[in-house]
Every structure is written in C-alpha cells, then in structure tokens.
Nucleic acid binder design. Structure first.
Lengths: 236, 236
DNA sequence: TAGTGGTCTAGACCACAGC
DNA sequence: CTGTGGTCTAGACCACTAA
C-alpha cells in the first residue's frame, strides 16, 4: 500500500465528506486544524486540498475558508446556443454493443429550471439513464417529459424500449431539436460515470418539439469526450 | 511595483524564453540552477514553473527535466468533425464595430499540413489576420488559398477587401464548408490575442469548396470564447 | 481585529528517466 | 549511477475577508 502522504490526506478528507462531516456549500475545517487532526504538515494538507479543488470537490476562498462545493455543472465554455437555424447532426459512438440502464424514473414536481420552458406544467416524468457501450458508461442522460401527455409512461421499461418509440406511439415524437452544447468541467457527474480521470465532459441540452411545434421533451446529457463525436458539415 | 516573488521569477523565466536563451522542445535550466541563478528558493521557482506549465508554456517531465513547449495547439476536446451531413451555421460577435488587421500575407511552399488536402499544389498564399470588435482582438485567422488560382492576390488589401468577395470575383467563392471545431488550451495564440487570462480558445478549421466542389480555401481560426457564439438548431 | 488561505524559506529524502 | 522533478517538514510572515 504505497501512497503519498497527500494522497492519504486526500482520502481522509474525502471520508469526512462522504460520512457527512462536511456539508455542501459550507466551510470545512481550516488548513491548520486539518493539519493537526489528520497528522500531516500544513503543506501536505494544502497539496491534498489543491488536488480536491482541481477535482471540483472543494473550493477555496482566500481570507475566508475552504468550502465543499455542490454545483453539478460549472460552465466553462459555451459552444452551442439556441437559434433559428436549421441543420442536422450526427452523434456517433465508436463502439459495437450498446445498452441503457435506468438509474431512476419518477414523477417530479415544479422544477424551476424547467418551469420557464414548459410554462404552467408542474408534473414531469424524470428519466435518468446511463448509456453503455461495450459495458462501459459513455453517457448519462436526464430526460423530462410532461406527465400530462405521458401519464402511462411508468408502465414501460425504458432500458429496453426507446423513449422516442414510446413517444412516437402517442404521436408525440420530437422531430425538431433546440440544442445547446457546452464543455463542462468534471463534477459529480464524472464520478457517476466512473470518469474521474476525465477533466471534461461534453454536455448537451436538448429541447424536443413535435411536428406541431409542441415542446414535449427536455433532456440533459453528459458524454464521455473520448467515445463521442459530434459530426457535422456546413453548406450555405 | 508590488509583486510576489514567484511572479518576479516567472517574469525572469519568460525573459529567458523571449531572449532565446531557452529553445522550443529543449530542456531549460533545472529547478536548482534556476533557484541559484535567479535568487529564489526552489519552492518559489517551482511555483513559477507550475504557473508557466498551466499557461502551456513549459512542460515538466519527471526525472528528466523541464522543457519549453512548442505546440501551437494541444487538442483537448474535439467537438466537431467532418461528415456528410448538411446544416447551416451562424457565428455571431456581440459587438458593434468590427475590423480586420493583416498580420502577414505571403506565399508559402509545401506545407505538409495542407499537402494531403490540396494534393500536388505546392504554393499557397498564407493570409494571417486578426479580427477586431470594438478595438479588441476577438479572433486570429490563418487562411490558405492556392497560388495557382489566385496569383494576383498580392495586389489587394484584405484588411479592407473581403477575401470571399475577392474569390467571388474570380468565380471561386467557397460555398460548401467542411468544419472541425475544437476547444484548445491556451497557447502562444492566446498571447498574440492578448488573451493570457483565457484558459481556452474556440478553434475552427474550415475547408471551403466551390459550387463545383473544388477545394479553394483552408482556414484555421482561433476565437475568444467570451465574444463568439456558435449558434445552431437541429431539425430532423 | 481575528482568522483564513497565500507565500516563502532551507533543507531533507524519494521516485523516476536516461546514460 | 547521476541528475531530474516530486514530496515533505516546521515555522515565519503576508494579504485578504468577515464580523
């Protein structure tokens, strides 16, 4: 069990986080206290903390303290944005076998992040799926569809049935998409995807509209940048 | 002139780089020697070096030494790639006045990076322009056009005349574009654009084809991510 | 003003790469 | 082996933030 002291210290701090000793958005112990309680020099504690900061788990505020971060996404660079232009898009996963796993599927109420999109609708199905390719998680998707239109969705298994096939059966398949693409720093999503070594994820946000231009889907996706390609070709 | 010692040290190392004391792809002085010659503790030198590493100017190799990097682009995350799909694209710069400045305009021979694209063509005009918006550099563009087709290009001032207008006059305006988009880490390009504080640039690479599908343009562009938007909308 | 993270030192030993 | 960057310490002082 060879390990540098700062790695040991990092692990101990992570333990304090996972056991709930430190709470999101709140200050953790200061460097001198960590040094004393964990038994490493302040420099070593500093090294461990810096590592956790670059992992996007802690945040330092000079003159104030070190905080446990909560944010799921930290916008770094926005590449796509909604606008009234037409194009087509292909996303390719360079793998042979693919599958889905439903992590969570439930009704959620009044998510303020969706309220401005869906207007007065207050109930949604939230479908969280991981997408696998050759047994490895390559994407995490969170889809929101209005309960009002898809009230029987709970009867289906969306790890096997395509969400779009289901929506198509109800004549509510989205055909127009309004997309936003960002490169996001690694976060808790990376952990869920076992991508701790990846520094960046590709983040896609879709708004799906039916042919009658009704908003029926809102999906957030996080992709492993090593397995996904966003391919396109311009023609004026 | 308040400045931390590691910032002073960083500046001194940068001076050694700009005066040619250290050469691209070669080792620089080791930490102990820098410490001795520049008069700072090894820790402070280390701090300065780490800062230059994160600026993408130096590269450390454990057990070997510290090197001056040369690479203009370090691919981090590839977002776009060529493929046979059609779409349209809008790039918007949220500024009121815009202008161009020609940094360099000359004939270049046999650039291996273009050879595979343009085949046997060995002579190109290389046009390097900075694009300004409200007096600030927002993009750096390097365009290559075959000398054979545009041999009189040297007569024109492309800080005023649009390159595409010129090409259009010769009935050689590109109308189809094959594009690749990447997020690239800051590099010497950032320095040229006075964007030293920006960590990322948006990098676009275009291949421009005429309506007869002849390749007539190859352009690399680096954009300030704070002033450019890449906007789009999917429609299947 | 008290407490936090930031900087800085001098010196020791460790891990790794190249000859 | 030799030399490189990496780790680690104990202790000092500085710059910043909040109450």
């Amino acid at each position: 069990m060879e390990q540098y002291l700062y790695e040991q210290a990092k692990k101990k701090i992570l333990d304090l986080i996972t056991t709930g000793k430190f709470q999101p958005n709140l200050r953790i112990w200061n460097e001198r206290l960590l040094s004393q309680r964990l038994g490493y020099s302040r420099s070593t504690i500093k090294h461990a903390i810096n590592s956790l900061v670059s992992d996007n788990i802690l945040e330092k505020r000079t003159g104030d303290g070190t905080y446990l971060v909560d944010a799921e996404i930290n916008n770094l660079l926005e590449i796509g944005e909604n606008s009234p232009n037409s194009f087509s898009q292909v996303t390719r996963i360079n793998k042979k076998t693919s599958s889905s796993h439903v992590e969570s599927f439930k009704v959620v109420y009044y998510d303020p992040t969706q309220r401005h999109l869906f207007g007065d609708i207050e109930e949604f199905y939230e479908l969280i799926r991981t997408r696998m390719a050759n047994g490895k998680v390559v994407a995490l998707q969170r889809s929101y569809i209005p309960f009002r239109k898809f009230s029987d969705a709970h009867r289906y298994d969306f790890s096997k049935l395509s969400l779009y096939d289901y929506m198509d059966n109800k004549n509510q398949k989205p055909v127009n998409f309004n997309t936003s693409i960002k490169a996001v720093e690694r976060s808790s999503i990376s952990l869920q995807m076992n991508l701790i070594k990846e520094k960046y994820l590709l983040y896609f946000e879709y708004l799906g509209y039916t042919k009658d231009n009704e908003l029926v889907e809102f999906t957030k996706s996080w992709y492993d940048p090593n397995t996904i390609e966003f391919a396109m070709n311009i023609k004026y």
